[in-house]
Design a protein around this nucleic acid. Structure first.
Lengths: 286, 286
DNA sequence: CTATAGTGTTGCAATTATGCAGCATATTAA
DNA sequence: TTAATATGCTGCATAATTGCAACACTATAG
């Protein structure tokens, strides 16, 4: 009996997740034909069919579902393993993958990244600026800088500072509006993804949906829109106060205040790189 | 961040198990240099050292122990997976790996393998005749034909027949011995591995160790030795009765009687091949 | 001591896997 | 409809991996 190639199972898993050979190839940074041929050899080795071709791409045969469960188990075991290895790294060099949102990248982190870079010139920080919540369990990133009320299970964090909010608009826009009627003026809102968060809840409670004239998936985009006079905007004060074109209105939004945290997987906090970065940010923002 | 090659972890595991690059290469059926280079790239990818070179070969660094635990977990997950896939195989074709001891291969199975082969010409039976107990969990074999009192957990079995024992010697040897004194004559014994089993216990209780003139690791070897007149032998009756040169003595060995079982992993009994083989043997020996 | 058999490691040639470009087909948009 | 984009799949040239043979070293036996 020949042994199966464990790495091919990784390919099978990605194809199952992505639903097509082409999408899997992009994820794996290889050519489509490579994925195709690896899946073929895997199926030949095990003498079984894993995928049916359907209109919507490669879809798992019912029997293969359990195999994918096994593959996922393998994957998470290896993620754990890699994290533990990375957690034992004591040298202050190598790469450090940090994820944060555009909001904090633009309004807060620039100078602190610069000073960190000066203090630890051999650590190459790789910033992933995205509003998607990357999965620290999957090692999509080593550290996440994000607002949260309570860190997820398995993650450890340091509260860096508070994030307060404010209501902003251009003076030109405000001229035509009665200050007591601002909630019925035109507002800049958020896409569905954000509407589930406390921000979204406040919004849907406070603003009539018919007054929302534009929806964005990012506070930075909201600020651009607000500066263009499109409508009234809810913004983190970090972003709003620094805008020369925007004026802040006196509205109580203290219930929206939230902590900004530096989060890392508990396996990784003993890593010198991770520890140094969190320590640095924490001191700089104290 | 680059992804690690899952297959290289398999190589790491084998090296850890075997203790040397060369031994791992033999196990994996590849060249030594391949193993060496794969271990190298694995360590470079993860940026960690896994093995120390010592006089006794490649030995794990203490930090790497947990990694090997993860690798073992991956391995057993994949064994489970492969078994489940094989268990869904409904066609009566392909290979079927059967392990049994030399004893039963020589004395019992030949004709039944022949008739099975005739009934199912597309199933290629691969016999592994060894006195080592192969691990059905690791898929070292699909079916084991071996004597046992109670099948291991996770295995399902069918009791095929009884295995009774007898005491044998050549008539020439017996001429010089008082039948009441046979236990103090020269005996053919067993190597340590067998001495832990009920057979061994009976032996050490019945025969003075000083009377053992030869030790074998196999009943077949014992029979050859007994036929050569070296000493008195305890043999399965299947082996002893069929020998033209040996005479059976009237000694009660019924306490040694044991069942011969066909064993398979529970995941595999639904496989058509496995089911057919066990069914065939069971009917033939009923 | 020598001889033998084992080990890890390296350069080079042969093998194998991969990327690329192209094809047919399917889906989506205008 | 047509055009544009995406998909799976295949031949061929290139790139990467592997086996082979040789080497240095160690351990063991005679």
């Amino acid at each position: 009996m020949q042994h199966i190639n464990w790495d091919n199972l990784r390919y099978v898993l990605v194809v199952a997740n992505k639903g097509s050979i082409a999408a899997a190839a992009r994820e794996l940074n290889v050519n489509r034909s490579t994925v195709l041929r690896r899946i073929d050899t895997f199926q030949k080795n095990l003498n079984c069919r894993i995928f049916d071709r359907s209109d919507s791409g490669y879809v798992l045969t019912p029997e293969a579902e359990k195999m994918i469960d096994a593959a996922r188990e393998v994957e998470s075991t290896l993620f754990d393993m890699q994290r533990q290895i990375a957690g034992h790294e004591l040298r202050l060099e190598g790469e450090l993958r940090v994820t944060t949102t555009d909001t904090f990248m633009l309004s807060l982190l620039g100078p602190h990244l610069a000073s960190f870079q000066q203090t630890h010139p051999h650590i190459v920080v790789e910033v992933q600026m995205t509003n998607n919540i990357l999965d620290l369990n999957r090692r999509d990133a080593d550290i996440a800088i994000r607002p949260t009320r309570l860190p997820d299970a398995g993650l450890v964090g340091r509260r860096l500072c508070d994030v307060d909010f404010g209501i902003y608009a251009t003076p030109q826009l405000l001229q035509g509006i009665d200050r007591k009627q601002i909630f019925t003026a035109r507002w800049i809102g958020f896409v569905d993804g954000i509407m589930q968060t406390p921000i979204g809840v406040w919004f849907s409670r406070t603003i009539d949906i018919r007054n929302i004239c534009l929806r964005c998936d990012s506070f930075v985009a909201v600020r651009v829109a607000a500066e263009a006079g499109i409508g009234i905007a809810l913004l983190p004060r970090l972003l709003g106060d620094s805008s020369a074109q925007l004026e802040r209105l006196e509205v109580d939004t203290s219930e929206l205040s939230i902590g900004l945290w530096a989060l890392a997987h508990s396996d990784l906090v003993r890593s010198a790189r991770v520890h140094a970065f969190i320590e640095h940010l924490s001191r700089a923002l104290a």
